[in-house]
Amino acid sequence: MAANATYDRALGLIFLVLGIGAMWHAQSLQVAFAADPIGPKPFPTIVGGVLALAGAALLIRPERMAWHPGSWSKVAAVAVASIVYPEVLIPIGFVPATSLLCLVLARALGGGWVQSIIASAITAAAIFALIDVLLGLPLPRGPLGV
């Protein structure tokens, strides 16, 4: 894909909005009591200002950059699996949930179905054994006890 300046402009706009948002949020802080005369407002205001300035600089003078597109669908699949993972982790337990997460990632990285299923189950079980059983750091145990 050809190099173009849109990415820098969009990024600059995001930083500008975030910076102004931070400054605005800082002004809205209600201080009932502060141990020091300065309080919690000025620092986020300054930092928000720096962010807004950096954003404005990118917006005004964007550089052309190339975006190298990869396999979007795979990235999205792994990201969605990772978002869902914490939701199911406690209900179904570490080993089943992690096996499913690993399965999605293994498939996205080109493993075959059978290979990926076996590898994911072994990985999840091995990590559970290492962390929970051996090191004694508790991981969520679902209805299956693992």
Partner: peptide
């Protein structure tokens, strides 16, 4: 990769949870 990186991801989440 399909063995290596799932293990790294699983270890990452296990670490944050621990």
């Amino acid at each position: 990769y399909w063995i290596l990186f799932p293990a790294i991801l699983a270890l990452s989440y296990a670490g944050v949870y621990a």
